[in-house]
C-alpha cells in the first residue's frame, strides 16, 4: 500500500518509446493499478513520449508514486524542444501539425485523472499527468 517507486529515463530514440512503456507498466502494476488503468497509463505515456521524440527530438520522462491521502502515479514529460504553438488548440481532438491523428494530447487528458501542460515557444514543453488508484 505504501509502495514507493520512482524513476526517470531519457527519450532520445524511437526504441525509448517502447522502453518507456515497459517502465511505466512496471511502475503502475507495482502500485496496484488494475489492468485497464495500467493500459490507460501506458497508452498515455506512449503518446507523450512519442510527441517528445517526434516534435522535440529528445527529452526526459520522470515518474513517481504519490502517497498522499490518495495513492497515485505521476508522470512528467519534459523537453527543450520548440514548444507547442497553441496549447488550447493542441488539446482539441484532431489537431496535428504533423501527420498524426491529433488524438495524443486530448486522448491523454481523457485517459488520466489530471493533466497539466506547460509550454513556451522556443523553450520547451513540460506535461504532468496523474492517475489515482481508485478515486
Amino acid at each position: 500500500m505504501n509502495t514507493l517507486c520512482q524513476g526517470e529515463m531519457l527519450i532520445d530514440t524511437e526504441n525509448d518509446i517502447v522502453m518507456a512503456r515497459k517502465s511505466v507498466r512496471e511502475a503502475a502494476v507495482t502500485l496496484g493499478f488494475g489492468v485497464t488503468d495500467v493500459t490507460r497509463i501506458v497508452t498515455a505515456a506512449s503518446e507523450l513520449t512519442r510527441n517528445i521524440y517526434v516534435y522535440a527530438g529528445s527529452g526526459i520522462m520522470r515518474w513517481h508514486s504519490i502517497n498522499d491521502s490518495n495513492v497515485g502515479l505521476e508522470l512528467v514529460f519534459e523537453d527543450k524542444g520548440p514548444g507547442i504553438i497553441d496549447v488550447k488548440l493542441a488539446m482539441e481532438p484532431g489537431y496535428s501539425t504533423g501527420k498524426g491523428l491529433g488524438m495524443g494530447l486530448p486522448g491523454t487528458k481523457r485517459l488520466m485523472d489530471e493533466m497539466d501542460v506547460l509550454s513556451e515557444i522556443g523553450k520547451g514543453t513540460t506535461i504532468r499527468i496523474r492517475k489515482w488508484l481508485r478515486q
Binding site: V35, T36, T39, R40, T43, E47, L101, M103, G107, L111
Partner: peptide
C-alpha cells in the same frame, strides 16, 4: 483486441 485495450482505445478517441 483485449478488453482493457478496447476500453483505452475508445477513451483515447480511436
Amino acid at each position: 483486441m483485449r478488453a482493457c485495450v478496447a476500453v483505452t482505445t475508445t477513451q483515447l478517441g480511436l
